[in-house]
Structure formats: C-alpha cells, structure tokens
C-alpha cells in the first residue's frame, strides 16, 4: 500500500466512525421516533458483527499446519475463562496474549 492509499484508508475509517456518531444527531434533531428497522438492527447487529470479527481474527489459522490451531484454542480458552471469572477486560486480553506468545515462541516454534 502506498502512503496515499494508507491515508485514504485511515480517512475512511475516520469518516465511517464520525458518520456513526453524528448521524443520530443529524437525523433526529427533535424527538422523532427512530424507524423500527433501525432500532432492530441496533439490537441485533452487534452480536452478528462480533462473531464476524472473531472469525476474521482467526481466518489464517490452519488446522493442518504443524501447530493445528492449538495455540489459538488454548489462548482463547484462557481469555474466555478469565473474562467469565474476573470480568476484567484488560486482564483477560493481556493474559491470553501472553499465553499465546509463549506457546508460539516456546512450544510451537515455526
């Protein structure tokens, strides 16, 4: 990617983010009710999108490679268990990442 393409990519992320934040204030300056389909998507879209993003993060994991996706599975189990137990977002993220780094660097070196 060239620098210009990088800047366009970042600008589009800014634009998309700003749009989602300003749109309600532009569309509903007064107390107009939100269209039901918009309310519905607001309720159900996050669940679907976060599933998509977890799949996206794991898109390059190969079950037939030398590590068979074991480091990913173990680290995700650590993240999920810690999160359900302690509910400390940053702790779950850091612990899972450290476990993953240790696994790919020490147990399953490429």
């Amino acid at each position: 990617m060239t620098l210009t393409q990088q800047l366009i990519t970042i600008a589009l992320v800014v634009l998309g983010t700003v749009l989602t934040r300003f749109l309600p204030f532009l569309l509903f300056p007064s107390e107009k009710p939100t269209p039901p389909v918009v309310q519905y998507l607001g309720r159900v879209l996050p669940g679907a999108v976060f599933s998509l993003l977890v799949v996206y993060c794991l898109r390059n994991v190969s079950l037939t490679s030398s590590s068979h996706g074991i480091p990913e599975a173990v680290a995700i189990a650590v993240v999920a268990a810690l999160q359900l137990w302690k509910r400390q977002t940053w702790l779950s993220i850091v612990a899972g990442t450290v476990v993953y780094m240790a696994l790919v660097q020490l147990v399953f070196p490429a």
Binding site: S51, C57, L58, I76, T89, I93, G96, T97, M101
Partner: peptide, 12 residues
C-alpha cells in the same frame, strides 16, 4: 493475538 483476545472478550 491481542486483537483476537479483544474481540473474544467483546463477543462474550
């Protein structure tokens, strides 16, 4: 993996 961990937490 920090990205994966973050989205697993958000997903949960």
């Amino acid at each position: 993996f920090v990205l994966t961990a973050m989205f697993v937490v958000i997903w949960l």
